[in-house]
Design a binder for these strands. Structure first.
Lengths: 211, 211
DNA sequence: GTCTATATAGCGATAGAC
DNA sequence: GTCTATCGCTATATAGAC
């Protein structure tokens, strides 16, 4: 059957989710997928190649509905609320955990690194688009680099997913703190010209100092 | 010798750094440490226990000098600059990478999770102290939960370290974006009573909405 | 395409000499 | 405390029947 490939990909994702990357082997994948172990190698050549395929497939499948919801967001706190809903959702379904596992495994594996960077970029791009749209008419737009912020949010989100795995209560308070941080940006956003002038002054000093 | 234990711990850290957690075995550790493989089990019982000991030791060794530098920080952007210096330093020495690897490995391993949460807390506590000190006299103090923010920063930092491993240039722009974000907080901080009133209004609405 | 059986290698862990 | 040698197991990957 042609869907044996799909079963293997789904089985790989599920195995990473439940057993971690370290417990993801040709045998454990095949058992989860309900197929024979040798088929891993018939269809994908190596376990490595199956991991890469599964990582990209899992990410694409999850980003699509997320990107749609992103389009309906109208302010920063809604964006964070969406991130939070995503966090809860991903915890239950466990696909960002898959990406986190792959990201960790990719640190010592250049080939895996390429696939993982591509997968992460699938998350970053729609977030970047949303940020750019939300901040288009805002005075804080000139202070914030949407490209960099989208990357920081995505990478930070992965870190929070990993943190959630070892300290669920701690990650809850961390997310609460970020909610409150977003309020600060909106305050500046709403203050108009007063804040804008202060912002520009600060930025000039910062640019000199940091760079 | 008593320092065989230390050689094994150092060897474990170095092995995780260069080969990842997946490439860290009793044999590879022993090779890096320059000792016999059987000594892993003589001194630590299991590879698992050695990993836990190494994770805590590596973190403690790195947090100590960092905590000292944290004490000299006087504003938020200095805190971020210190984080950035730490990032560069850790990349070269590779110890946060060790923590990131352990954090990923701990997702499917409750025993490892406990040790990793403890190690991460070693970073969180001094950061929390610094945040509390820096924001003590600030109007934004009531908007920001320092406990949660310290956790979010620490977890996010780990995520950025992982991201750096697969996209070094991307992580650079992400860190730049965070520098600029800190400026926003300082602007609110400097604006005084005007911003404070707006902030309180916003926070009331947020608290109703989010909770 | 799918199965059984197996080659080869590396793993954690232990026994026992020194 | 440190070594050699090895057990028992599991890993990836392949060969060959069906």
């Amino acid at each position: 059957m042609a869907d044996t490939r799909q079963r293997l990909i789904d089985g790989t994702i599920e195995t990473i989710r439940t057993h971690g990357l370290g417990g993801t082997t040709a045998r454990s994948i095949a058992a989860t997928a309900g197929v024979n172990q040798a088929l891993v190698f018939y269809h994908f050549g190596t376990v490595h190649d199956l991991l890469r395929a599964a990582c990209l497939a899992a990410t694409q499948a999850r980003v699509a509905p997320f990107a749609e919801r992103l389009g309906q967001v109208t302010d920063l706190r809604q964006l964070l609320a969406l991130g939070r809903a995503l966090h809860a959702d991903e915890r239950a379904r466990g696909n960002v955990t898959v990406l986190a596992q792959m990201l960790a495994g990719a640190q010592a594996d250049p080939e895996l690194a390429e696939a993982t960077a591509t997968a992460l970029q699938l998350w970053i791009t729609p977030i970047e688009d949303a940020l750019t749209r939300l901040l288009a008419d805002s005075p804080v737009a000139e202070a914030i680099d949407t490209v960099g912020l989208a990357r920081a949010m995505s990478a930070g989100f992965v870190g929070l997913e990993l943190y959630e795995g070892v300290d669920p209560e701690g990650s809850q308070t961390a997310l609460d703190a970020l909610d409150r941080l977003a309020v600060l940006i909106e305050v500046v956003d709403d203050l108009g010209p007063i804040a804008l002038r202060a912002l520009r002054g600060k930025l000039r000093k910062t640019t000199k100092k940091v760079r």
